[in-house]
Design a protein around this nucleic acid. Sequence first.
DNA 1: CCTCCACAGGAAGCGCAGGAGT
DNA 2: ACTCCTGCGCTTCCTGTGGAGG
Length: 409
Amino acid sequence: MGVLIFLGENVFEKEFARESIFIDRDAISPHYLPEKLPFREKQIEEISKLLGVALHGKRPDNLFVYGPTGVGKTATVKHVMQQLQDFAKEKNSKIISTYINCRNHNSKYRAMIKCVNDFYPNNYFVGYSASFVHDKVLDFVRGNEGTLVVVLDEIDKVKDLDDLVYALTRANDELQKGAISIIGISNNLMFKERLDPRTKSSLCEQELVFAPYNASELKAILEQRIAIAFKPNSVENSAINIAAAFAAKESGDARTAVMLLQRAGELAEKNGLQKITDEEVKKAKSKVEEEVILNMVSALPEQEQLVLYAISALTLRKKGIRKITGSADEGALYSGDVYEEYATLAKHFKAEAVTARWYREYINELEMYGLILTTASGAGIRGNTTLIKLGFDAEKIKQVLEKELMQGS
DNA sequence: CCTCCACAGGAAGCGCAGGAGT
DNA sequence: ACTCCTGCGCTTCCTGTGGAGG
């Protein structure tokens, strides 16, 4: 076995010497919590006004915060909580807050035990009964004789939310000293309407809505992050504009905008560039889109993957099938042909094919995801069928699915 | 005009997994 | 530990629909 020895230069020498355009990579990651939150002054004021009463020993109203993803809900609430904690510490006010992400703590019990573990960092509580945990929370508030603010992020993920809210609000009746307030955060606008009326009225004593950012706000947010994350003048102005415009058009979501620039930065660095230009942002954009598709496709159930695979295979093959030479539907496929292809493919992959009826449900679902486009067959085609077109590049989807289906079996 | 084609999509029911109730 | 119930994914069966073809 031959051994290669590099004389003189360590392999890391080059990497070390390499100039990075980053100063602080974290600042351009979606998890970064900036010190200042632009365009959220109003919301910050609202929340602090609400919580301010706690400084005078009163219980703040519960608050329900909602708005789509990436509009700064979590960041704003966390920011205010931090400020409140700092201030309370300074003034010797007894205010404790705890932040719970309900995606990870998605039941009453799990949320409560998260509280307990936060309050008693030296103990680790596992395997205790629900009532013990409940009492422990109350004991803590009693012992503290102050206000406890429980932040429940992604509150719609809690399975038995009615019970949790009830337990926390009910606690206020049992406590002679101290109080508990809830701040619920959700990006699901419909979720509130599905709540039990009693839960709804106690949780939504106060409400706060976060609207999406517009392009110029996104631009300002990006500039703020860029100033920390990158070396001066490493990002071209037009590149920022593109990223902001794209994110604004999609959803007004700062997370998307930030991610776009993060990717663009990584791309520039990989290619040894000193500046991020439009080009990098555009490339990053298509990369992000690709990842989104990839994630969607791999999250699909196997049968739906097969259907999608059949569609991409047929789109590429275009032989032995009925052709559509219409205007807009040029290159679209007949639903029936896709089903046949799917059925043979299923046999090939040792899986059992579902009935045509259920296959139609799959088609509808794939359309809902935006992975395929369908139109009803109109004039020029015999019968009443659906014409199917792939929403994305056939070759790419086929490749992804081939990998996916191979490892699946 | 009627018939047939090529499906769409509703209704009922079936087998199963997993949670609630006892 | 046991049954009971419920929701889910799916099949079977069926009726409906819009245009082509004779």
